[in-house]
Design a protein around this nucleic acid. Structure first.
Length: 519
RNA sequence: CGGGAUGUAGCGCAGUCCGGUUAGCGCGCUCGGUUCGGGACCGAGAAGUCGGAGGUUCAAAUCCUCUCAUCCCGACCA
């Protein structure tokens, strides 16, 4: 223990300095992240290595993500279907790059039953003739179906989405960001031409970007991945990339143009207008429960989770305050009146939910409970308020004590206005944070200084995004990665052409890429 | 899989180096009372085969061996 971290026993920290989450983001970002999840009661590690239990408050966020995205997929012409969790090993072997990319993280099912092992336990028995892979992604198993479904150009485009669970046997896991099993959606589409497939790839990336910006209030960069970062088997990978509060990048969604690679592997062929057989062009695109990790790290503060209203499981905590039965009766009556106001009330396209918290706890405890859960608004109702036909309204984006009295008659309007302001506030905060921590760097020494922590063993929050020139050589990318653990996160679409010299080798470059440390 | 660390009550920890009554502390929990609009207080109480197995010893949370698990750092990754 170093001197700075010694706790002062018997001497409570001053009230003003106290934060609901310890340590703070500045003190230990990784630990802060775990504590936010715990304090908000979103998820926990299960007994199963690397797997998480998603608790109701966390799962409700995922359900909201599903609901909104599913609507957007449907509007863009996609339909949901479901394919097996098990993929025969032989399917998997058909696409060489794909195999290489995923082989090291596959869970393999080799037996079909259990038998008494004679020692009071069980042993696996009934070995399968062909092992099954638990899907790490479904291109190959879906491709097997698509090969049957696609016969003519008239069958195209084929626009399918699947909501599923995925298993990738990762070495190190972190709640929401990287778990052995995770939930996601994977879109898989088949097209007649390369142009059509590319258009689809870009369209779905735009859907993700719009969703991230408008619902998660996360500003994302959109662009292309480099060869070394692209999806195994893809021709091009596009992504949405976001900056977290520790200034690291988080890949939050990807959309892949698969060319004819998987069509050839799975024999997805169609007869064209001339009667000739051609391989189709496919795409795939996905976002996962990692988005919840992005949400946490983009907005939350030292008092816990911060949720944009458009994705929050609930929007208003109703906190009645009373001392005796008489006050209780009057106060609860007012609470029910408020619940009525918001019953089936919408904030734009989002249904408003309220949480009446009548637990036998002090007002402060209940307030802090909901602050830590990130609920956008808190409404306190006490005897004084009831007498005035008003309530005290508090916002998660303001100080805990910062409350204002609102007449019940004006409450609905005030709440709707506040939710919009909170949503915008979070987006603008995240955007200015990213802008403040993004720099154009042309000097190699400056680039290295930017990404080098003072203490390597306990790296402090440093650096950010660097917009620097890159010549396009894989070796230069690799060198930067070796030296600094910094990678090219994205080559943004909106990055203008501009003459410069590669940050690694000094050779001529026409464009900047975004370099950063990442999750 | 390499390097480091840790397993003691629901949670967080002390005690282990140097073996010795009934294994402590804080939070939480239960009951009673005073409180309640800014993370309350007083009193009482319940809760632990000290990760597991084996060994040394009159005596093991403590020493030895093995084992299992978790966390952190690397390589891998949505």
């Amino acid at each position: 223990m170093c001197g700075m971290q010694v706790k002062i026993h018997g001497e409570p920290m001053s009230k003003q300095k106290r934060t609901a989450i310890e340590p703070t983001r500045a003190d230990n970002y990784a630990e802060w992240y775990q504590q936010v999840i715990k304090a908000a009661d979103m998820a926990e590690n299960s007994e199963v290595r690397g797997c998480m239990v998603i608790k109701p408050w966390g799962y409700a966020i995922w359900e909201n993500i599903q609901r909104v995205l599913d609507g957007m997929f449907r509007e863009t012409g996609h339909r949901n279907a479901y394919f097996p969790i098990f993929i025969p090993k032989s399917y998997f072997e058909k696409e060489a790059e794909h195999v290489e990319g995923f082989a090291k993280e596959c869970a393999v099912v080799t037996h079909s039953r259990l038998e008494d092992d004679g020692k009071g336990g069980l042993k696996a028995a009934g070995e399968l003739t062909e092992p099954y892979i638990v899907r790490p992604t479904s291109e190959t198993i879906i491709g097997a179906s698509f090969a049957k479904w696609v016969n003519s150009y008239r069958d195209l485009p084929l626009l399918i989405n699947q909501w599923a669970n995925i298993v990738r046997w990762e070495m190190r896991t972190r709640l929401f960001l990287r778990t052995t099993e995770f939930l996601w959606q994977e879109g898989h589409t088949v097209h007649e031409t390369a142009e059509d497939a590319m258009e689809e790839t870009r369209k779905m990336l735009d859907v993700y970007a719009k969703f991230a910006r408008e619902y998660l209030a996360i500003p994302v960069l959109t662009g292309e991945k480099t060869e070394s970062e692209k999806f195994p088997g893809a021709v091009n990978t596009y992504c949405i990339e976001a900056m977290m509060q520790d200034k690291k990048a988080l890949q939050s969604g990807t959309s892949h143009f698969l060319g004819q690679n998987f069509a050839q592997a799975s024999q997805i062929k169609y007869q064209n207008r001339e009667g000739d057989f051609e391989y189709a062009w496919t795409t795939s695109w996905g976002v996962s429960t990692r988005l919840i990790g992005a949400l946490i790290m983009a907005h939350s503060d030292d008092n816990g989770l911060v949720l944009p209203p458009k994705i929050a499981p609930s929007h208003i905590a109703l906190i009645p305050i009373y001392r005796d039965d008489e006050e209780k009766k009057a106060v609860l009556e007012a609470c029910h009146e408020i619940e009525e106001i918001f019953q089936r009330q919408y904030f734009e396209d989002i249904r408003i939910y309220t949480e009446l918290d009548d637990r036998d706890l002090t007002g402060s405890e209940r307030n802090w409970y909901w602050i830590k859960k990130g609920i956008p608004l808190r409404i306190e109702v006490g005897p004084r308020d009831v007498a005035q036909r008003a309530v005290m309204l508090a916002r998660r984006d303001l100080e805990a004590r910062d409350k204002k009295s609102v007449p019940i008659a004006d409450l609905k309007e005030e709440v709707l206005k506040s939710l919009r302001e909170i949503q915008d506030h979070y987006y603008n905060n995240a955007l200015s944070f990213r802008e403040e921590n993004t720099r154009k760097i042309d000097d190699q020494k400056e680039f290295y200084r930017y990404f080098t922590p003072k203490n390597v063993n306990q790296p402090e929050i440093h650096g950010g995004f660097a917009a620097s020139h890159w010549c396009g050589a894989a070796a230069c990318e690799e060198k930067i990665k070796e030296d600094l653990k910094v990678t090219i996160r994205v080559i943004p679409f909106d990055m203008p052409e501009e003459a410069g010299s590669c940050i690694a080798c000094g050779k001529a470059s026409q464009k900047r890429a975004i370099f950063a440390k990442s999750y």
